[in-house]
Amino acid sequence: MYAWIWRHLPGPWPLRLLIYLVLIAALVYALFIWIFPWAEDVFNISEVTVG
C-alpha cells in the first residue's frame, strides 16, 4: 500500500517525500479532529458522572 502510493506520487523524490509527509499530516489531523472524538464518545472511555 505505502509502496504503491509512493510509486504513484509525481515528481522527483524530495517532492514525493514532501507530498507523502503532507498526506500523512492531513490524515493525522483528520483523526484528531473527527475520528478520535467520535471514538471517545462511542467507547465511553471517559465518563465521570453518576446516575
Binding site: L31, F36, A39, E40, I45
Partner: peptide, 17 residues
Amino acid sequence: EFMLTAGAVVLLFVVYT
C-alpha cells in the same frame, strides 16, 4: 501493512486522549 497502520493509529489515539 494494515496491522502496522492499526498499531500506529491506536498509539495516536492514546496520544489524543
